[in-house]
Design a binder for these strands. Structure first.
Length: 460
RNA sequence: GGCUCGAUGGCAGAGUGGUUAUGCAGCGGCCUGCAAAGCCGUGUACAGCGGUUCGAUUCCGCUUCGAGCCUCCA
């Protein structure tokens, strides 16, 4: 069955054909800048990329999944004096830039674990690849596409006739805007490849280079590391949609200069999670992270489920109430799954439909609707339903098989005694006493529910 | 100001040139001592105005509204 994916570069859905014929697919995903925690909008993109990876695997490919860690060089703005996010974070917290990077890198992978996102096959830090970046800059310099200003080495975008094609940038339109500050740059779209350390200041992170002591610009790290691990042209490059006009446009320009390729055959972008009709952003200071959800008693997988209910190429409007509805739905699905017996076979007709949905540019929304259809189906045996759902879940990653209802063992004896009291009252049809026992239980934080197998108790 | 992309029922969100998902909430029913859960049933929503068409929510144009990028940003 054909896998087809939307390619931002072509602005259309294209049948996926891998570059290599050995069954492998090269996938590069822009990773976090580790100067702060990831927020749940950031994490939505990693969920999308995880589903992409799983769908590729479903189609029989081995995925070389590379994610970078930006631990240097991510500038606070393009027109500033050389301050970058890491150093700024260090100044804010009194820790070293290196410590900051370590803390937030660890937190990032903790978040991924909560969301059942598979660990990338390669995780690469920008600070471990300074040499590669210097080499790449030298190659661009050899093509005479750079120039030097008082604060760094810049890429001259006017030398690239196709600059900005990915974003369909209208360069002249940009120049008419009031907010573009060129400074010493020759063109508003030019960007730093290497930044010089300020002469009067000792940076925590700085390296020697042919141009002087300093640190690499943000964009060059992705081109350099992606090329190192996946070659100068690989299959799929992902990131958030905000990367289309600048970061990814710059990566393409750099790769064109170095290797004459557009770096990746497909460019795919995850859309935003909005709150109050605006995108969630770290720089605004007001954002929700994974721990914020956990602190509120929310289940991280419910957030994953929420993201999967929408298509990755549409913005989601986040609110606590839609997370609640996702959570309710997920728990019903889990409970239904839990009740099903083992030992069945995967139903071919459902399997075929499932694959056709996810292979159609990752339509997880329809794939989830198919789960409800399957659960309600009268034609499929319960055991086969379980086997089929288990197969689906390898791609969706909802961990259905790992869920169990709250254990009865956790209920204290005094609570169980109240439950017994209620049962005795019920058998003697003393409904008032039975209801009182239930109210007492509720006051203690427990809910009792009658089932054909007797009463079940759980915490409220 | 320029560019990119959107607008679907109470909410979230798929999809389609004619039969109009799915989930949450709501309503009705079954079950239950009652309740909860579960199960069954139930909702013609596709921003507005034109155009193309036998027929448009779906294609085209305009208008309005929204988001993103142009400053770091998933």
């Amino acid at each position: 069955m054909t896998l087809s994916l939307y390619d931002t570069y072509a602005r259309e859905q294209r049948d996926f054909v891998p570059i290599k014929n050995d069954g492998s697919v090269g996938l590069y995903c822009c990773g976090p800048t580790v100067y702060n925690y990831a927020h749940i909008g950031n994490l939505r993109t990693y969920i999308f990329e995880d589903v992409l990876r799983r769908v590729l695997e479903l189609n029989g490919y081995t995925v070389d999944h590379v994610v970078n860690i930006t631990d240097v060089g991510h500038l606070v703005s393009d027109a500033d004096d050389g301050e970058d996010k890491m150093e700024k974070g260090a100044a804010r917290t009194g820790k070293t830039a290196w410590e900051i990077a370590e803390i937030y890198t660890e937190a990032f992978f903790e978040d991924l674990k909560h969301l059942n996102i598979k660990t990338p096959t390669v995780i690469c830090k920008a600070t471990d690849h300074i040499e590669e970046q210097i080499l790449a800059i030298q190659q661009i310099e050899a093509k005479e596409m750079t120039y030097i200003t008082s604060d760094g080495v810049y890429f001259d975008t006017s030398r690239d006739p196709d600059y900005g094609y990915l974003a369909r940038l209208n360069i002249e339109g940009l120049q008419e805007g009031a907010r573009v500050e060129k400074g010493e740059k020759r063109n508003p779209t030019d960007f730093a490849l290497w930044k010089f350390s300020p002469p009067d200041e000792k940076r925590q992170m700085e390296w020697e280079s042919p141009w002087g002591k300093g640190f690499p610009g943000w964009h060059i790290e992705c081109s350099a590391m992606a090329t190192k691990y996946l070659g100068p042209l690989f299959d799929i490059h992902c990131g958030g949609k905000d990367h289309i006009p600048i970061h990814h446009s710059n990566e393409i320009a750099q790769s064109m200069a170095c290797y004459g390729t557009r770096l990746s055959n497909y460019w795919m972008h995850g859309y935003f999670l909005q709150t109050d009709k605006a995108k969630m952003s770290k720089s605004s200071g007001d954002f929700l992270r994974m721990q914020s959800l956990i602190d509120k008693g929310e289940d991280p997988i419910a957030y994953r489920f929420l993201c999967l209910q929408a298509h990755y190429r549409s913005d989601i409007n986040f609110s606590w109430s839609i997370l609640e509805s996702a959570s309710t739905a997920l728990n019903r699905m889990r409970d239904a799954f839990y009740q099903l017996p083992d030992g069945g076979d995967v139903e071919d007709s459902y399997k075929t439909q499932f694959i056709s949905f996810v292979n159609d540019d990752l339509n997880t929304s329809r794939a989830i609707a198919l789960i409800w259809d399957l659960l309600k189906s009268g034609d499929v045996s319960n055991a086969n339903k379980k086997a089929t759902l288990t197969f689906f879940d390898e791609t969706l990653g909802l961990q259905l098989a790992e869920w169990t209802p709250a254990a009865k063992a956790d209920i204290p004896d005094e609570i169980m005694q109240l439950v017994d009291t209620r049962q005795q009252a019920r058998s003697s049809k003393d409904w008032a006493a039975a209801d009182k026992a239930r109210d007492d239980l509720a006051a203690l934080g427990y809910e009792v529910v009658d089932t054909p197998d007797g009463p079940e108790v759980k915490t409220i």
